[in-house]
């Protein structure tokens, strides 16, 4: 069985990667647990958005917009659930749904295997993610939320750096082509 296939006909040869059984579920659960657990012991770890990185990675790898957005929705709503009553269900859900869709769509058009591409894309997706959250808060929740702060800039860079290494680890969960 061939685990990669061409999704845009003969002119583009972008692989769609498949993963070992349960890899996506395990990686998602692990990211959510770590996201809720790490800041207790390492407060600075709250700057990381591991669920977002998971959504980006699987979106870029699976390259299927429907799968990407559904995965983003599930991860986002789970993150909402774990974030406490100050974060209503759907806030991260909407943002990650859109990021999942965008990542899958972009992944289907670009080669996203290079670390530099992953770094740049993660920064971009992080910025879009924060933009969607700010927009949702402002429009739907009437909560003042800054569009950009220095903290968010640093967080984008840190998440991008972590993403480069995390994606290399997650690559090992792929089925060999």
């Amino acid at each position: 069985m061939n685990d990669t296939y061409d999704i845009r006909g003969s002119e583009l040869h972008i692989e769609v990667h498949k993963f070992r059984a349960g890899a996506i579920i395990l990686a998602t659960a692990f990211a959510l647990v770590l996201q809720a657990f790490l800041p207790i012991y390492f407060p600075k770890a709250s700057i990381l958005d591991l669920p977002l990185l998971i959504v980006i990675y699987f979106g870029l790898s699976r390259r299927n917009p429907s799968t990407g957005l559904l995965l983003g929705m599930v991860i986002g709503i789970l993150q909402d659930s774990l974030s406490g009553p100050t974060v209503p269900l759907g806030l991260y859900g909407i943002a990650k749904t859109l990021i999942g869709y965008l990542a899958s769509s972009i992944g289907a058009r670009l080669d996203t295997e290079h670390p530099a591409a992953r770094f740049a894309l993660t920064i971009a997706f992080f910025a879009v993610h924060q933009g969607i959250i700010a927009l949702t808060r402002r429009l739907l929740l009437s909560q003042p939320e800054p569009w950009f702060t220095m903290h968010l800039g640093v967080a984008a860079l840190v998440n991008a750096v972590v993403a480069v290494f995390l994606f290399l680890l997650l690559d090992r969960l792929r089925k060999p082509s």
Binding site: S66, L69, L70, L89, I94, T97, L98, T136, L141
Partner: peptide
């Protein structure tokens, strides 16, 4: 997928 996206986002907006 665009319809699905719209539906999913709309659902979550309603949930909010």
């Amino acid at each position: 997928s665009i319809f699905l996206l719209g539906g999913v986002v709309l659902l979550q907006v309603l949930l909010l």
